[in-house]
């Protein structure tokens, strides 16, 4: 069970043009920075990216957009990226916007082996267009299909060589549900440890879901909105 790879370049080596990728993170928090850098270097095109946000102009998935590697984005909120908005409004980029809970739960469904879920989010809006609606106990729900992604790329705080993962604070976000949802899941971690060093009771993502793992480097962990209060 050799899951450890040397780094991001090796982890993403067999990603091909036209594939569907899930990328963990919320805004720039908990983003698989090393793998995104490697994806930009690798230069694959026509990718479909499932990620809550689209990064900013010069960081995160924004870097892949700038290089025109992304054919389609599936996200819930993309408000922080001018290049994204430009490509979208000019029709260069295909975009599917989904309610955030729908996005997360479609990942979850994939990881739990369920073909679809029912959610009230989006009923009566354009999100419902073309989707099956079912009424349960007098309330309408949309049927939303489990995602089918070739690769899920996530970032954790710690991981062991068996692929078990632990996340830190709100950098957890989409990472656990995406880790469960990829045909191949790549995890980059701030600290790679040996089996036994993580308390089994504290593991967030069991290693069975993780196929490749490596210790990342040079984490920038950029803050998108630095808000502070003055010391009194």
């Amino acid at each position: 069970m050799n899951k450890v790879v040397s780094g991001a370049d090796e982890a993403i080596r067999d990603i091909q043009d036209g594939m569907t990728l899930m990328l963990g993170g919320f805004g720039l928090c908990g983003l698989p920075e090393n793998c995104i850098t490697a994806l930009v270097k690798q230069g694959r095109k026509e990718l479909t990216c499932i990620s809550n946000n689209a990064g900013v102009d010069d960081f995160g998935i924004g870097l892949m957009l700038k290089q025109r590697q992304v054919k389609k984005m599936i996200s819930s909120y993309v408000g922080e990226n001018a290049e994204f908005e430009r490509q979208l409004l000019s029709g260069e980029l295909e975009v599917e916007l989904l309610p955030q809970g729908t996005l997360a739960t479609r990942c979850m469904a994939a990881g739990y082996g369920m073909p679809a879920i029912f959610t009230p989010a989006g009923v009566g809006t354009e999100v419902a267009e073309g989707k099956e609606t079912r009424n349960f106990d007098g309330k309408d729900y949309l049927m939303e299909m489990a995602f089918d992604a070739d690769f899920a790329i996530v970032k954790a705080w710690k991981g062991d060589t068996m692929g078990n993962l632990v996340y830190r604070s709100t950098a957890r976000n989409f990472n656990p549900v995406m880790a469960m949802a990829g045909k191949i899941t790549i995890a980059e971690v701030e600290e790679l440890v040996q089996p036994g060093e993580l308390d089994p009771d504290h593991v967030h993502t069991p290693g069975i879901y993780v196929h490749r793992i490596f210790q990342g480097k040079d984490y920038e962990k950029r803050i998108e909105q630095r808000t502070v209060r003055a010391k009194e």
Binding site: L28, C29, R222, I223, Q225, R226, T227, R229
Partner: peptide
């Protein structure tokens, strides 16, 4: 957080520290 105590792993839904 107080200035200097921001943690990039601790944000809210508006991406604020």
């Amino acid at each position: 957080p107080f200035e200097g105590e921001e943690d990039p792993d601790v944000i809210n839904a508006g991406k604020q520290t």
